[in-house]
């Protein structure tokens, strides 16, 4: 429906966005305020941050993690927590160089400590080299290795929590993908508590914001850059789910939020009798795993010495 009067519901200035639940229009300044207020409300509601925490932002240099660093840089001082950035350089030619430069420029501008962990350093080769002959598995291999690299980065900077830039679209897509795959354990999996001695808790402060809201926030703050997309990006299923959810969100606004409520409801009401598999340590590298050999060592074909 067309709007004759596009004015901010709070101050009457020209609006840049129309939001639902509650229905409102916001000007640039009030949109930025609204975004930051929703993120800090989520941080408090879900107890993501405690005074004295050292929060490591997984900073790829892309839009979501850039927004996350900008938001946390504003919000964390009030929460008594410290901020540091960790970037993983997987070694993806034609993609990572530019985002890495963006990450370095942003942390320098904000005065945030920044650590870079490379696949070459950790795994002996960059992603392009590790994927020769199995390029189609790019996302799956990178996902496993990147999680390990991020954990290593978090250790190096002495962080107490890892914050990632997952947005509402990412999270809603994952919920639907887990349903479509019939993967209940993954639907219920909650990484926000961590595992003492092994994984620090992971937090997703931007999961209350849609991708569109994040890009609007970046455009308004002057930080949106049209960066290249990862050449290995996206599995076929995620791509299909993304298109389907975008259609549903357009025709039925609030679909993604309702999917997240559904997941939270399932998590609250469904309790598994215990971990499906007891965790042990990998016999090759000593990291936590559900089998004898962790997925990183299996993917890299590492052998016991």
């Amino acid at each position: 429906m067309a709007s004759a009067e596009n004015r901010c519901s709070l101050c009457g200035e020209p609006a840049v966005a129309r939001l639902v639940e509650p229905e409102r229009r916001l000007c640039a300044a009030h949109f930025i305020e609204d975004v930051e207020a929703r993120v800090i409300a989520a941080i408090r509601r879900e107890r993501m941050v405690f005074p004295g925490d050292r929060i490591a932002v997984g900073l790829s240099g892309g839009k979501d993690s850039t927004a996350l660093l900008l938001v946390l840089h504003r919000l964390l001082p009030a929460l008594g927590a410290d901020l540091v950035a960790v970037t993983i350089d997987e070694g993806i030619a034609g993609y990572r160089e530019e985002t890495l430069r963006a990450a370095e420029a942003l942390t320098a501008e904000l005065g945030v400590e920044h650590a870079i962990v490379t696949f070459a350093d950790l795994f002996g080769d960059d992603l392009d080299g590790l994927l020769v002959g199995r390029e189609a598995q790019g996302c799956a291999v990178c996902g496993v290795l990147r999680r390990r690299a991020l954990a290593e980065g978090v250790k190096r900077v002495g962080a107490t929590r890892l914050a990632t830039g997952h947005n509402l679209d990412d999270e809603a897509q994952s919920v639907l993908m887990n349903i479509l795959r019939g993967d209940l354990p993954r639907l219920l999996q909650d990484t926000s508590t961590g595992s003492p001695g092994h994984f620090v808790p992971r937090i997703k402060p931007l999961a209350v914001l849609s991708e569109k809201e994040i890009v609007t926030y970046l455009l308004l703050r002057g930080y949106f850059r049209d960066l290249p997309e990862c050449p290995y990006a996206g599995t076929a299923l995620r791509s299909e789910v993304r298109t389907m959810l975008a259609e549903l969100e357009h025709r039925h606004p609030g679909t993604m939020v309702r999917l997240m409520r559904f997941r939270d409801g399932i998590r609250e009401s469904f309790s598994l009798p215990g971990p499906a598999k007891a965790l042990s340590t990998c016999r090759i590298c000593g990291e936590l795993t559900s089998g004898e050999v962790c997925r990183v060592c299996a993917l890299l074909g590492r052998e016991e010495r």
């Binding site: 709007s3 004759a4 596009n6 020209p14 840049v16 129309r18 308004l220």
Partner: peptide, 9 residues
């Protein structure tokens, strides 16, 4: 030059 909601004319 200004960001607007899509229901603007």
């Amino acid at each position: 030059g200004k960001i607007v909601p899509e229901d603007v004319i």
